[in-house]
Design a protein around this nucleic acid. Structure first.
Length: 933
RNA sequence: GCUCUGGUGGUGGAAUCGGUAGACACGCAGGACUUAAAAUCCUGUGAUCAUUGCGAUCGUGCGGGUUCAAGUCCCGCCCGGAGUACCA
């Protein structure tokens, strides 16, 4: 009987839906396993063939885990807030909620066709009030907590207030934006509003004037991970630096724990490394330099305290607060001119053009160790946001300082023996110290330790760990995002009462900023908070007595995606983000699949967010994603035809060098194995109607290139088309067969026929002509062997995410069984269960044809009989490459003659065992014998 | 610059702990079936030389090394991809 995949697939997709086969509930008799995909942003373009790669892999894994007896949570949802829907709304006036809903429906339709085992009853959408209520709730919690650096956890802000009332800042250990010092009397005598503004310095969600990445084209600020090389990641628009009052999250307070936590999770080294670099821990010292004739001390951060004797000048960032203090009357004009010049340069110019620039401030600092007077400069090579925004310059051992010193003709003093600094600096932490009084003769490594010790003892500064990781800017000047649960009472940001959440996103009729430059929410007419009645009211009622304006910013994209994995556990709970008992069962994600592009964004924020909730006791695990696998990107594979310039003639790729040609993208869907469907090409566009072709071997062969998958390159392949032509099971197997999961690779349908042929052969094992024909006989040893080696291989492959090689193993298995004409029920049943995770529809169909009343996914995964494989290994050696190998342990201490003797002795044994003469014998002492027949 | 990754036939890729390199698949060539085509099946397919049957030599980006044995380990380079960057 023919393998009719489209009937089979629609039949089982319906059956699964009707019987809720994939619905999952807490079952305390079973171990849980949580498999999660990074949820998609539903874009207008729909899914292309690259998107499902990770979903297929996680689907296989979930089904496998279920067959192994786990209670598997495998949900899916949508990251529904985002820029594209809003940009579309600006252009068309279509409400983002409408387009988002349409896109979600389209995504769902596409996903369903591939036959995933998601429990859709747990779906979340970040733009739904029932969901974003908890995003707003978490924000309020962050506002109401500070980070205690001694306890290393988030604590209630009321604890901090109690400490201030009792002892002021004395003994307080709290992460803060600025280090403040005040006594209990000073605190208690402060006005209420003043107290609130002091507390902002400590809150985990806080509002502050921050240097932000402002993107004029998008009309919003962006987080650091949303900017790359001075351009916005979305859209590629220029980004400038600007000071604005913004909500921020004190992510930096969690830097140490984010770093430490990496040790306990099972991620790839490269991803952990990317996070380590982004967090950027560096150990060093803060050093105070006295300024000549002034009270103020200049504090710098350095990792090279050992080079203190080589300091010949100081440099301040242009934005540094020190600039005003150290600039002298005589230098004021020069400094102002320089600051003005720096301000006019965009971030991008500053990065691309690394020309040395700077200005002398007029002041001198005193080197605390040598007592030398050294000039203080201002230059934009020093960043305001890192360390203290000021550095001690050691031109002999830092290439940037070196370039600066050469440019301004400043002295360069080497402090490491035998270093020539006439051409370049010596940056390596290597060598023996010199010119350094008490450090002379020490190695650099010893000197770093010794110098830090010296600094501490003499009270010149303190040992300090610095992080590169900065707080996240949490405001966006956009419409399509979560509204902040915040109103402004006489200018003071105040949280809405928790029981009034969610604060619903208002309707507006214009998605652009307002005339006076406010974010789009400024257009909302009903957007004010009536404190007394605790409800949203018309703007016109604002009286600043009991009705106040609401926040006009919205939250960024990562807000909704930071805790969604928790919500899947308990998606309809209206009392809590997640019930604690429910969380105790599902705990955290065991396996998370997604792209590397989230390494420094989502994967940092969600870890931080999760740790915060853990500190509050809401959840039981502080790391959200135990194991993480990155699937590679599927790139587009474009095809080209070559038009002879100035004609309507097209030449096949092999002959194109003989003509003057112009390559033209051609729709990949009318090309098969590089051969162009000429009729389809003529019909494709009117301009090709009368095209003529210069063929090779009677065919038109196209050229190809790997490019991004995009409409303009005509290389987008839609999964629906593949499903229609070959079936979902073929698509699933083929995507896995394409190559290693983690590797990026171009989509190319050249091999899909082979996979489809395999499924037909597999189907064919169960039929004799038109008849379904399966034998109840006991299988032979040879048949069992084929089965068990396949079980062994598939089990290993799934557990190691080596899905591509397991498809090969299935092909070999089916080839062998069909060569043996095996139709034994025992073998075939096991094979169905084995393959079911990969090709669920066809397996479910065959499983039911075998007379089973329940789903194949209620069966158990077959177990490999290792003993049997070992026993048969001599007679029927295991081998996946089609050749025969016999292995035998050999004693370790043999010389060459003994080895040869051993080999000859074994040759006899092998002959007796197998009745054949070996072709070749390879013998290795201490290892194994390889005998090839 | 730094960090991470990768480099194997005409193509995608396999080789899981240092043990026959090229599994499996595509493509190609030849054959069977067919009036013909499609579909299906069979055979061959790293290179060079030898082909009368055997075979022989080379071969995993390049150059060295360790080992009985290296695609795999070590040292030094070359090339591609990704991330990140005046981070003191």
């Amino acid at each position: 009987m023919e393998y009719n995949f489209s009937d089979i697939e629609s039949k089982w997709q319906k059956a699964w839906k009707n019987s809720q086969t994939y619905k999952v509930d807490i079952d305390r008799n079973k171990a849980k396993y949580y498999v999660l995909d990074m949820f998609p942003y539903p874009s207008g373009a729909g899914l292309h063939v690259g998107h499902p790669l990770g979903y297929i892999a996680s689907d296989i894994y979930s089904r496998y885990k279920r067959l192994c007896g786990f209670n598997v949570l495998h949900p899916m949802g949508y990251d529904a807030y985002g820029l594209p829907a809003e940009q579309y709304a600006i252009q068309t006036g279509q409400h983002p909620a409408v387009t988002t809903k349409e896109n979600i429906n389209r995504y769902r339709e596409q996903l369903d066709k591939i036959g995933f085992c998601y429990d859709w009853s747990r779906e979340v959408r970040t733009c739904e009030p029932i969901y974003y209520k908890w995003t707003q709730w978490a924000f309020i919690q962050m506002f109401n907590h500070y980070y205690d650096t001694a306890l290393d956890k988030a604590m209630s802000i009321s604890d901090l207030i109690a400490q201030f009332e009792k002892n002021g800042t004395e003994g307080v250990s709290a992460a803060s934006s600025v280090e403040l010092k005040f006594s209990a009397e000073e605190w208690n005598s402060k006005e209420e509003t003043e107290k609130l503004s002091v507390l902002m310095n400590y809150r985990i969600a806080y509002k502050a004037d921050a240097m932000v990445n402002w993107c004029p084209a998008l009309g919003t600020v962006l987080a650091n991970d949303e900017v790359s090389e001075g351009l916005s990641v979305r859209g590629g628009y220029p980004v400038e630096q600007k000071v604005m009052s913004q909500w921020c999250l004190r992510v930096s307070a969690y830097a140490g724990r984010l770093l430490e936590g990496l040790e306990r999770i099972d991620w790839t080294d490269s991803l952990k490394e990317a996070q380590r670099n982004w967090i950027g821990r560096s150990e060093g010292a803060e050093l105070s330099f006295k300024i000549k004739n002034q009270e103020t001390e200049l504090i710098v951060f350095t990792t090279r305290a050992d080079t203190i004797h080589g300091v010949t000048f100081m440099v301040l960032a242009p934005e540094s607060d020190y600039v005003q203090i150290v600039t002298t009357e005589e230098q004021k004009n020069a400094v102002d001119a320089y600051l003005d010049q720096v301000k006019r340069r965009t971030e991008r110019e500053r990065m691309t053009d690394k020309k040395v620039s700077g200005v002398f401030s007029g002041s001198y600092a005193i080197n605390p160790v040598t007592g030398d007077e050294i000039p203080i400069y201002i230059s934009d090579y020093v960043l305001a946001g890192y360390g203290t925004g000021a550095i001690m310059a050691v031109p002999a051992h830092d290439s940037r300082d070196y370039a600066f010193a050469k440019h301004f003709n400043l002295p360069i003093i080497p402090v490491i023996e035998g270093v020539d600094v006439s051409e370049q600096s010596m940056d390596a932490k290597d060598g023996i110290m010199c010119n350094s009084t008490f450090l002379n003769g020490l190695s650099v490594k010893e000197a770093i330790v010794c110098a830090k010790q010296y600094i501490k003892e003499k009270g010149l500064g303190r040992v300090k760990v610095n992080y590169r990781l900065r707080d996240a800017i949490f405001s966006r000047q956009r419409y399509w995002g979560e509204p902040f649960p915040v109103y402004y009472k006489n200018g003071v940001p105040t949280m809405l009462p928790e029981d009034k959440l969610p604060l619903l996103l208002p309707e507006i009729d214009n998605y652009l900023p307002t005339e006076n430059g406010e974010p789009p929410l400024g257009h909302a007419t009903k957007w004010a908070w009536d404190e007394k009645n605790a409800c949203v009211v018309e703007n016109t009622k604002i009286d600043q007595i009991s009705v106040f304006p609401l926040e006009l910013n919205t939250m960024p994209g990562f807000a909704g995606s930071s805790a969604y994995f928790l919500r899947y556990m308990d998606p309809n709970n209206e009392e809590a983000l997640v019930d604690r008992q429910v969380n105790d069962y599902w705990q955290n994600v065991d396996l998370y699949l997604g792209g590397t592009e989230h390494a420094t964004g989502h994967l940092i924020y969600s870890r931080m967010w999760n740790k915060f909730l853990y500190d509050l006791g809401i959840i039981c695990k502080d790391e959200p994603f135990q194991k993480l696998i990155n699937q590679g990107m599927i790139q587009g594979r474009s095809n080209f035809v070559y038009r002879v310039k100035g004609t309507n003639q097209y030449v096949s790729v092999g002959l194109k060098d003989q003509y003057d040609v112009q390559p033209i993208h051609v729709n990949v869907n009318i090309v098969s194995n590089e051969v162009l469907d000429i009729d389809a090409f003529r019909a494709w566009m009117p301009e090709y109607k009368d095209a003529e072709f210069i063929l090779e071997d009677g065919k038109y062969i196209c050229g190809w290139a790997v490019e991004k998958m995009s409409k303009s390159m005509f290389n987008v392949v839609n999964p629906d088309d593949i499903v229609a032509k070959y079936g979902a099971d073929t698509l699933r197997l083929y995507e896995m067969f394409l190559g290693p999961l983690e590797q990026s690779k171009p989509w190319d349908t050249n091999g899909i026929d082979g996979v489809h042929r395999f499924l037909k052969k597999f189907w064919g094992l169960f039929f004799k002509g038109e008849e379904f024909c399966v034998s109840e006989e006991n299988p032979t040893a040879e048949e069992l062997k084929t089965l068990h080696k396949t079980i062994k291989k598939i089990t290993w492959d799934i557990e190691n995410f080596s899905f591509n090689t397991s498809v090969s193993a299935f092909m070999i298995c089916v080839n062998e069984l069909s060569a043996m004409k095996c139709n034994k029920k025992e073998i075939l049943s096991a094979l169905i269960v084995l393959l079911a995770s990969y090709a669920p529809h066809v397996c479910e169909e065959l499983w039911s044809l075998l007379g089973n009343k329940t789903s194949v996914f209620d069966a158990s995964f077959p177990i490999c009989n290792e003993e049997f494989l070992k026993e048969t290994a001599v007679k029927y050696p295991i081998s996946f490459n089609g050749k025969v190998r016999f292995t035998l342990e050999m004693p370790a201490d043999l010389n060459k003659t003994e080895i040869e003797e051993m080999a000859l002795a074994n040759e006899q044994t092998i002959k007796q065992l197998d009745g054949k003469s070996p072709k070749k014998i390879i013998v290795v002492p201490g290892k194994i014998v390889n005998i090839v027949f």
